[in-house]
Structures are given as structure tokens and as C-alpha cells.
Write a protein that binds this DNA or RNA. Structure first.
Length: 584
DNA sequence: GCCGTTTTCGGCCCGACTGTTTTCAGTCG
């Protein structure tokens, strides 16, 4: 069996999560959490357990936190035999598709077990059939509402696959936040949950409000336009489904525990668990109502004071994933992540040229005006090049003509007293052999050159890696755009040895892009962290095909922050002069 | 099942809501 080629961490992680659910189903105490922990650890572990096992054997596995004797044995068994007997037995005992059924809101292991035992339901299809035939409502512990919720849950799963892009939802959520802020009964309001942490995809939107008239807030919230269904409306908590297909929750809390509530509802869950453990170690108790010592509340009004009392630096929401930020905060070594107002220019903008070229919707001038509005010092026009027929890519001659036009507009803007500078660039295509589709003497004349993969995604890992590295060795290529090519919810990235690419980027002084386009966000957070550790510089670009899309920069910055990137790691935080000095 | 300057046993994060019950289990965040 050849397991070496693929990462087995994710497969094992899924198995351990499922074992946890099976055990919970059987009412076993504490073991489920242990397997869950192991699943979580493997999910985020950077090194492949297969490699760890090969190099250090079982001893190496035991060094992984959350992995003890029993789970190490199971990993060993999976590596040697490709399956885990314990897991197979659990599946045989209750042969249900947990991965499918657990996706339904309101169904957990215990209810799934009853459905299987009483009605023999094993998967979504059988669940839907039983619900439609009203066989579920009469079951003990179920009822007509549960039955209806199951049917709606199945619909939801079909419609949206559960999660939305941050870029789709954040503008909308901010609108509602603004409306709430305007209410005279509302003292404070904040987004919470994954949207406050700016995760790349969002399950639902959480609001936290301080008000002494919560009922009024509930009434307002539950009468917002676009609500499809009200899941629940209580005195201080309500939940609604929007027509677009996502849910929004709101909570009203008293001012004295706003900070504790905000901390709590921002999560992540893993971060909070770790934080509560620290609280216990230090003799406190932490809940959404505050930080308590011997029954007395010592902090909770502001989020910052909770961390301060626990002897920690304040981690910005984007960092709260329990992937090292807790330890760093305790030892006061948190990174000073890039701020949202530190970007001085966007180097990946497309334009309309000769009425049709280059896939963009706006002229050079319109894009430049937007850059001025955003307070930038420079904007880089990175036109597609000739290989990319579908985007009307430019050839050498057309690039030359475009540059004359850029010169003209630069002069015009200068006369007007604007300090913006339009930079001449292109986004060339990396061909199969690692060369690009524009001649070197043409590239040399540009201010900067981006190169990206836009074809033949399905190469072997080795060949794809070599292809990109060869492009980076070209002395004219400054930036590699969207380095892994993934599209969130649509397609996986191409197979590349990202570490090798980063090392080559460092050697060749090539910049890797953090593409801010909502469905790209590529590099992702773990890769950004890796790049920073390896010492590769990055650039946050929007890939805007329309002037309004230049606002996407916010999502790229959020991504950079989640990847622990600091101002110095990001090249377009520098002034124009410093930027030009850095480019090849 | 994991973990350990309370370390080889005895702990394991905490609270609210929903839908079901008739005092609470299950689920969620």
C-alpha cells in the first residue's frame, strides 16, 4: 500500500471524529472528548503522521499532544493495514452515515441512534423519506417540530452546503450592525463568532448587543427585511434564517458582562476551551458572564481586561484558533499583525483596454480614481497576457500601447496634484515548462511582473512544483499570483510542494501573493504562517476585475492577520520608493 | 482515552435553549 503520496492526517482526523460520535451515541463518558481532541490535533497538524511514524515510530506519535498509547496504536494500525478494527466494529454495530446525518441541525449522536434503532434510518435519503411519511414525530423524545426541522435541515444542506464566503456575507452583516447601532435603545453592538474572526467561510452571523430594553431589540431584529423564518424569539436571544440561506443570531447582554460575552461568543470554541483551562489553573472561573474568583466577578465589562487578568496579551479575534496564540499571549510574544489601514497600494488590478481587452470592467483612469479614493500611493495594472484568450490577454505590442496611455494618465493626475502613481505590470501565464508567454525584453520594461498558473492544473506535484520554481528563477518575475490555485467551495488547489516553493521564493527574492478575491484567499492562513517562518515576503492584492472589487483588500488583510503576518512581511505596506527598490 | 510543578489516579469547559417532557435530555455555541 502506498500511503506516502497522500497526507493521511485528514483521513485519520475524520475517523477519530466519527469514533467520538459513535462513543457518544453509546453513552460512553470522556472517551469521546479524547477522540475529538485527537481528531482536531491531526486536522491542523502540519507534519504528516505517516512521516512522523516512519522516522520515529510509535514514540514519535506519542509526542503529539492528545495522542496517547491507545490512539497511537490505532494510527499505527491504520498505517500498516489501512484500517482500524475498533472503528470498523463501531460502524458495524451502528451502520449509519454519521458524516451525512450529523450535518442536520438539531441531530446529534443520541437522536441518530434512536432513528436507527426504531426506524432503521442509515442515511439522508432514508431520513427524508421517514420525515415525509411522518414516522419521526411519534418517536419518544421527538415531535412534530423536530420532524419539520429535519426536513428543512435537509433542504438547507442541499441549497447552500452550509457555509458562505466571508466576502458574500460581511458587507451585509455590517449593514445590519449599522442599523442596530442606530437604535436609541442600543448602547453597544458588535459582530461576534466566526465573522468577527474573519474566517474565510461563515456558517452563521452572530450579533452581540448591550441594551436595557432587550425586547425592543428582539422585535426590531425579528422584523428585519429578508427574514425567511424565525427559529426562535426569546427575551434576550433570537435566531432567524435569511432568504439568502444563512442564519443570524442575536444576543442582548447587560453592560457589565459585555466583554465576557463578546470574548465568549467570538470563539473559536477551541480558543475558549483553552482559555477556560488557564482560568482554572489560575484559580478563576470563566464564563460568558465574566471572570470570577471565589464567586466574585473580577472582570467582564471589557474583553481586554479578561486577558489581562489571566496574565495574557490581547489576541485580536483573527488569531483566536488555539493554534499557538494562547501560548504566545501568555509569554507576551504575540505577533503585531498588519493593520487594516497599512496597505499603500494594490498591485493586481485588471482593466478594460481597447474596449474589450484584459477582462477588466473599468478603464485605467477609473481604477486610478478608485485607488485615490482608497488613499493609496500606487496602483499596479496587471493585465492578463496573450495566452489567456478568454480574458483577451495583451501581447507585447498592446502592452507597449497601454503603457503610453498609463504615462499620459500619470502626468494628468500629477498636474491635478494627486500623489498616486500608476505602475505598469502584467499577469503573465506560466506555461507547462515554466516559461511565460511574454518575451523577457518586454517584461524588463515593466515596473513589475506577476506570473500565475491559469492552465493545465492537473499536473503531478513534482512537475507543478518545478514549473513554478522555474518561473520564479526568471529575473523579471517579481510576484507569483494565487500560488495554490484553490477556489473555495469549488475546487482544490493544484498539487504543489508549497514548502519547496517558498524556499525557492526566498532564494530568488520572489514575492508570493495573498489574493484577496473572496473565493480565492490564496495563500491561506497556514501557508501565510509558513511563508513568514521561512522568510518569504508577501503582497496582498485584490485581483480586481471591477473598481469596486478593490474593496476586497479587507478580506486579504484579514487572511494575512489570521496567518500571523506583520507589516514587515507584506511588501505593499511600503512606500512607493521602498517598493520599487525591493522589486527585481 | 489523555494528562500531569496538586503526576500514575482522578479529573476532564460551561451555560442556555428547544422540544420534549412533567423535571429534563440533547444539542448548540
Amino acid at each position: 500500500m502506498n500511503l506516502g503520496e497522500i497526507m493521511i492526517n485528514q483521513e485519520l482526523s475524520k475517523i477519530f471524529y466519527q469514533i467520538a460520535e459513535f462513543l457518544e451515541m453509546e453513552g460512553v463518558a470522556f472517551k469521546p472528548q479524547a477522540y475529538q481532541k485527537a481528531g482536531l490535533v491531526l486536522e491542523t497538524l502540519e507534519e504528516d503522521v505517516f512521516d512522523i511514524y516512519n522516522q520515529k515510530g510509535k514514540k514519535g506519535l506519542l509526542e503529539i499532544p492528545g495522542i496517547g498509547e491507545s490512539i497511537a496504536d490505532k494510527i499505527e494500525e491504520y498505517i500498516k493495514k489501512g484500517k482500524i478494527e475498533y472503528y470498523e466494529k463501531l460502524k458495524k454495530r451502528t451502520p449509519v452515515r454519521l458524516d451525512e446525518l450529523m450535518g442536520i441541525e438539531g441531530l446529534g449522536p443520541k437522536k441518530i441512534k434512536v432513528l436507527y434503532q426504531k426506524l432503521g434510518i442509515k442515511n439522508l435519503k432514508e431520513l427524508e423519506k421517514a420525515a415525509k411519511e411522518h414516522k419521526i414525530a411519534p418517536l419518544f423524545g421527538f415531535g412534530p417540530k423536530t420532524e419539520r426541522n429535519i426536513l428543512e435541515g435537509i433542504q438547507f444542506l442541499r441549497k447552500s452546503k452550509g457555509r458562505f464566503l466571508l466576502g458574500e456575507i460581511l458587507p451585509f452583516a455590517k449593514e445590519i450592525e449599522k442599523k442596530l447601532k442606530k437604535m436609541k435603545e442600543v448602547e453597544k453592538v458588535s459582530l461576534a463568532g466566526s465573522i468577527r474572526r474573519r474566517k474565510e467561510t461563515i456558517g452563521d452571523v452572530d450579533f452581540l448587543v448591550v441594551s436595557n430594553q432587550p425586547q425592543k431589540v428582539m422585535d426590531f431584529f425579528c422584523s428585519l427585511k429578508g427574514i425567511e423564518k424565525i427559529w426562535g424569539k426569546g427575551k434576550t436571544k433570537s435566531s432567524v434564517r435569511m432568504r439568502q440561506g444563512f442564519d443570524m443570531d442575536i444576543r442582548v447582554v447587560p453592560a457589565r458582562c459585555y466583554g465576557a460575552a463578546l470574548q465568549y461568543f467570538t470563539g473559536s470554541k477551541e480558543h475558549n476551551i483553552a482559555l477556560r483551562k488557564i482560568a482554572i489553573e489560575k484559580g478563576y472561573k470563566l464564563s460568558e458572564y465574566g471572570l470570577f474568583k471565589g464567586g466574585k466577578m473580577v472582570a467582564g465589562k471589557e474583553e481586554e481586561e479578561i486577558y489581562r487578568f489571566l496574565g495574557m496579551e490581547y489576541p485580536v479575534p483573527e488569531l483566536r484558533t488555539d493554534s499557538g496564540e494562547i501560548e504566545a499571549a501568555l509569554s507576551h510574544k504575540l505577533p503585531k499583525v498588519i493593520e487594516y489601514d497599512e496597505i499603500k497600494g494594490d498591485l493586481h488590478c485588471h482593466i478594460k483596454w481597447a474596449g474589450k481587452f484584459d477582462g477588466g470592467a473599468n478603464t485605467i483612469e477609473e481604477m486610478a480614481e478608485m485607488a485615490i479614493e482608497m488613499g493609496y500611493e500606487y496602483i499596479g495594472i496587471a493585465s492578463h497576457t496573450k495566452f489567456l484568450k478568454i480574458e483577451h490577454g495583451l501581447n507585447e505590442q498592446q502592452l507597449k500601447e497601454r503603457d503610453k496611455e498609463i504615462d499620459k494618465i500619470n502626468q494628468k493626475l500629477k498636474k491635478r496634484g494627486e500623489k498616486i502613481k500608476i505602475l505598469k505590470g502584467c499577469e503573465a501565464n506560466i506555461l507547462n515548462n515554466g516559461s511565460v508567454d511574454i518575451k523577457d525584453d518586454c517584461l524588463r520594461k515593466l515596473d513589475f511582473v506577476i506570473a500565475g498558473i491559469h492552465s493545465n492544473f492537473k499536473m503531478s506535484k513534482k512537475r507543478m512544483t518545478e514549473r513554478i520554481i522555474r518561473a520564479m528563477k526568471n529575473p523579471n518575475i517579481d510576484i507569483i499570483s494565487h500560488p495554490t490555485g484553490r477556489l473555495i467551495k469549488k475546487r482544490e488547489g493544484y498539487e504543489v510542494d508549497i514548502e519547496k516553493i517558498m524556499k525557492a521564493a526566498r532564494e530568488t527574492k520572489t514575492i508570493l501573493e495573498i489574493n484577496a478575491y473572496p473565493e480565492r484567499l490564496d495563500l491561506n492562513d497556514t501557508n501565510i504562517r509558513l511563508a513568514k517562518e521561512i522568510g518569504v515576503k508577501m503582497v496582498i492584492n485584490t485581483d480586481a476585475h471591477h473598481k469596486d472589487q478593490m474593496k476586497f483588500i479587507e478580506f486579504g488583510i484579514a487572511q494575512a492577520r489570521r496567518g500571523w503576518a506583520e507589516k514587515s512581511d507584506i511588501i505593499n505596506t511600503r512606500s512607493l520608493a521602498e517598493l520599487i527598490k525591493y522589486l527585481k
